[in-house]
Write a protein that binds this DNA or RNA. Structure first.
Length: 651
DNA sequence: TGAGATGTAAACAATT
DNA sequence: TAATTGTTTACATCTC
């Protein structure tokens, strides 16, 4: 019981605080955190400094090299970790397209580093061999032969490791090169000797109990939504794919990674399965707990066998991936154009100065570094996820949320500072919907958003739950935890008012109370101002960006096939609710309908109850049969930015 | 260092 | 009776 509880705590621990005993090793360094983040090699998470062992001075015994190779993924991530924000922070700072761009640049950088490293290793070995050969003239023939043999074996081993390493990178999507494209020492590898069907064996450790998983996949005859196969064979011919016919991407860009695919590949370890992680089935919509891999395999074969439903789910997943890829491509192009227009230098690597602690499991972005910071020049990143610029680094979360979500950051953006939650959601609606990433908003702001999105500004608890699960992939897991948090927040915050309705109890938002709990306005709080304006041009940039957000929004929201009806309309109008940082000069408020954005307008607000001014009893008026009536609430000073009037806008 | 905000866990009661 | 809903308390963490 206690163990289970503790386990759950660990899994869902938001910020991975060290309060959880025995986990200090996870938080003490970037390398360890990165290793956990990668989570693909089954390492023990001790946070060994794989970086130092890998790039020290090039002297490395075969055993060390083997160890290095086995930990290559953590090492690779660790190489970046010192210059990297946590994935959560990256996510908050950068929009998915930006992350994608960063990821690609980092891939190239990593490949280059690896090639250099291997080249150095080979040169050293050759040199040693040569030296020994010359020295061996004075040595007995037999000894020389043995030494030569040893060196040759060593060389061969290194070459094999190189090969494996490259294949690993390919599998993880870190390298999308065809073998023939490899340059430098990699070209010397016997590439042709490895066919794609060998990959599983290569990726598996010696004697790793991963066979059942592979078998199960084959038995299913499914490509598992294309995730596993595509992740494992980016550069491989499709012949390794099971019978299921692939739906070729119309845009022909199969090399674009998605967070989900990435996450799958990251967690695939010997004895693991891309659809199995943290003790539960990761099949979309399925959270079945499985004690071990065997049980999971059994579950997989029974619950997700080849049938219409599974096939349909695969297709859906493929479409999701496809749409995300399209979206990423579009946004990347947009970003490039914007940066070009602003005379930014996208290719100029400018690592963040802060040490980074990738969130364990946040493999979605764990490979992303800021080496290609699209906003050099010290500009603060646009607050697509606004907390980012001011979110301090913190120990990585420990959770299952991990990769996925990386563990919640303590400070969510929406409530404070400048993140308009609805803008963020509108912008990255599909991202949050499909990526298992925890949204950078507080429960309170999310609940409020859910309620405000409805025409009548009221929701039952169950409807709130549904909104969470519908809007965020993250909340399709750990339901007990976050549902409890939702209930807790509903009860705790005065801004949420329970109203007895005909159908039962519904929850509404008291906007006045909600605004009360907000932090002081920027103009009135120097500290806050300092935090907000961490960059010289933040204000201007933010304002511009807010305006830009209104324009660009989420292209796919207008795509009929991409959006479930109502979400776009429900999201977009709510642009500024949360956010609009106080004091922000936001002429457009990030909304696309300027007329309603004039400051004096105030949100609709649900007047749910008579509010006794006494602090004591106003809270739960009990069966307040007063139906929520939209009304203007609160003095202007309460409003940093007005609430949209969705109902009106929708009309 | 303390206050406030937030997240998580848990116990408990009321309701369905 | 079990599940859901709602309330409350406790604790940890983070930011200011």
């Amino acid at each position: 019981m206690m163990v289970e509880s503790a386990s759950e705590t660990i899994r869902s621990a938001p910020s991975g605080q060290n309060g959880v005993g025995g986990l200090s090793g996870q938080t003490d360094g970037g390398a360890g955190a990165a290793g956990t983040a990668a989570g693909s090699t089954g390492r023990d998470g001790t946070g060994r400094d794989t970086t130092s062992s890998a790039d020290s001075n090039g002297e490395m015994s075969p055993a060390e090299l083997l160890h290095f190779q086995q930990q290559q993924v953590p090492m690779s991530v660790a190489m970046m970790s010192q210059q990297m924000l946590t994935p959560q922070q990256m996510q908050q700072i950068l929009s998915p397209p930006q992350l994608q761009a960063l990821l690609q640049q980092q891939q190239a950088l990593m490949l280059q580093q690896l090639q250099e490293y291997y080249k150095k290793q080979q040169e050293q070995l050759h040199l040693q061999l040569l030296t020994q050969q010359q020295a061996g003239k004075q040595q007995p023939k037999e000894a020389l032969g043995n030494k030569q043999l040893a060196f040759q074996q060593q060389l061969l081993q290194i070459q094999q490791l190189q090969q494996q390493h490259l294949l690993n990178l390919q599998r993880q999507g870190l390298v999308s090169l065809q073998p023939s494209q490899a340059s430098g020492p990699l070209q010397t590898l016997p590439q042709a000797a490895v066919c794609p069907t060998d990959l599983p064996q290569l990726w598996k450790g010696e004697g790793a109990p991963g066979q059942p998983a592979e078998d199960s996949v084959r038995q299913e005859g499914l490509d598992l939504a294309g995730t596993a196969a595509t992740a494992t064979s980016f550069a491989s011919p499709p012949k390794v794919s099971p019978p299921l016919s692939h739906h070729p991407l119309p845009n022909g860009q199969p090399t674009v990674l998605t967070a989900r695919r990435d996450s799958s590949s990251h967690e695939e370890t010997p004895g693991s399965h891309p659809l199995y992680g943290h003790g539960e089935c990761k099949w979309p919509g399925c959270e079945t707990l499985c004690e071990d891999l065997g049980q999971f395999i059994k579950h997989l074969n029974t619950e997700h066998a080849l049938d219409d439903r599974s096939t349909a789910q695969c297709r859906v997943q493929m479409q999701v991936v496809q749409q995300l890829e399209i979206q990423l491509a579009k946004e990347s192009e947009r970003l490039q154009a914007m940066m070009a227009h602003l005379h930014m230098r996208p290719s100029e690597p400018k690592p963040f100065s802060q040490p980074l602690n990738p969130v364990p499991g946040s493999s979605s972005f764990s490979k992303v570094t800021v080496s290609a910071d699209p906003f050099p020049d010290g500009l603060v990143h646009p607050p697509t996820s606004a907390a980012a610029p001011v979110t301090p680094l913190r120990p990585p979360g420990l959770g299952s949320a991990s990769l996925h979500s990386g563990g919640p950051a303590r400070r969510r953006s929406s409530d404070k500072f400048c993140s308009p939650i609805s803008s963020e959601l509108a912008q990255n609606h599909e991202f949050y919907k499909n990526a298992d990433v925890r949204p950078p908003f507080t429960y309170a702001s999310l609940i409020r958003q859910a309620i405000l999105e409805t025409p009548d500004r009221q929701l039952t608890l169950n409807e709130i739950y549904n909104w969470f699960t519908r809007m965020f992939a993250y909340f399709r897991r750990n339901t007990a935890t976050w549902k409890n948090a939702v209930r807790h927040n509903l009860s705790l915050h005065k801004c949420f008012v329970r109203v007895e309705n005909v159908k039962g109890a519904v929850w509404t938002v008291d906007e006045r109370e909600y605004q009360k709990r907000r932090p002081p306005k920027m103009t009135g709080s120097p500290t806050l101002v300092k935090n907000m304006i961490s960059g010289l041009s933040y204000g201007a940039l933010n304002a511009s960006y807010q305006a830009a957000l209104a324009e660009s929004s989420f292209p796919l929201l207008s795509s009929p096939g991409m959006l479930n009806p109502g979400s776009a309309s429900s999201l977009l109008p709510l642009s500024q609710d949360d956010g609009g940082a106080p004091g922000e000069p936001l002429p457009s408020n990030g909304s696309s309908s300027p007329p309603r954005l004039s400051p004096p307008q105030y949100s609709h607000q649900v007047q749910v109850k008579e509010e006794p001014t006494e602090a004591g009893e106003e809270r739960r008026p009990g069966p307040a049969l007063v139906p929520p009536t939209p009304s203007i609430v609160g003095p202007p000073e309460d409003r940093d930015l007005e609430e949209e009037l969705p109902g009106e806008e929708l009309s």
